[in-house]
């Protein structure tokens, strides 16, 4: 696969490490959320046959974490964003 890195342009997928569902961005606050909420967060994931947002890490590159929108059936990649930007847009800060 080829991943169009928002900073570095097209890069081979071999340079990246895959993590999984980008919903991991929405980590609950451990001081307020309990075991149930964290359990949902960590384990309850959808596994769509189709478009999926995923976290990838450019380990053999610039160490950016990316959010990649990929069709799990066709492997078509429709969007690549810096995870930091996505995280901020979802309201994450410090």
């Amino acid at each position: 696969m080829i991943i169009h890195h928002p900073i570095l342009g097209p890069r081979d997928a071999q340079e990246f490490v895959y993590l999984g569902d980008a919903n991991l961005i929405d980590r609950p606050d451990g001081m307020t959320a309990g075991v149930e909420v964290f359990h949902e967060y960590l384990y309850q994931r959808t596994n769509p046959a189709g478009e999926h947002q995923e976290l990838w890490y450019h380990e053999q590159g610039d160490r950016s974490w990316l959010v990649i929108t990929r069709n799990t059936v066709t492997h078509e990649i429709t969007k690549v964003e810096l995870a930091r930007d996505v995280a901020r847009s979802r309201g994450r800060s410090k």
């Binding site: 991991l24 961005i25 980590r27 976290l55 950016s64 974490w65 810096l82 995870a83 930091r84 995280a87 901020r88 994450r92 800060s93 410090k94």
Partner: peptide, 8 residues
């Protein structure tokens, strides 16, 4: 640093 606490 990048995904969970991007403004640190």
């Amino acid at each position: 640093r990048q995904v969970l606490w991007p403004d640190m």
